[in-house]
Amino acid sequence: MKNYRSHTYKETPAKRKLYKTLLWLFVTTFSFTSFRQKDQAKEYNLKAAFIYNFTRYIEWKESSDQNEFIIGVIGTSPINDPLAEIVKTEMVDNKKIIVKQFSKPADITFCHILFISDKSSVPLDDILAKTTGKGTLIISEQDGYAGLGTAINFVIVNRKLKFEANVKAINAAGLTASSQLLKLAIIVK
């Protein structure tokens, strides 16, 4: 950046070189962002599919009055679109899936799965305080969150989507995770 600034005031052939460099920077930056966007869409597709697949390996306590399976999302997230796609066709335990959007901890009502977007500004403790012992599977996507008390936390390892599982947190929420699922997870204590 220093270099770049020092050259701006000179009307030399180097200036043309500077434009070229600028152009190159622009192009690469643009292409990188578009690549990133694509990557991101793919990532959230997978995350949505994983979330749906988790329902097959997690056992919720039978809450009889619930006729719907509720997935809550805190903070705006690209996951909304792929989740909406899944909801259209799939069911969980013969229950319709409903996606609810929350922005404040105070808004949070009962849900089977609560996904905390990495763009959410709500403090984790508030969310945990609101949901503890209510049979909600909390899924996050920020490094270290599993250690902080979310049940499942998405991580990227070797450019592959993996997930951490906090067995204590899962059990504390009153849920049971199948051993097959835990085998695939990175266990966090």
Binding site: F50, N53, K162, F163
Partner: peptide, 14 residues
């Protein structure tokens, strides 16, 4: 039967 979750969670290593 054991490979089903690995397919679902795309875990080739597992």
């Amino acid at each position: 039967e054991n490979a089903i979750p690995t397919l679902q969670f795309l875990d080739q290593d597992a």
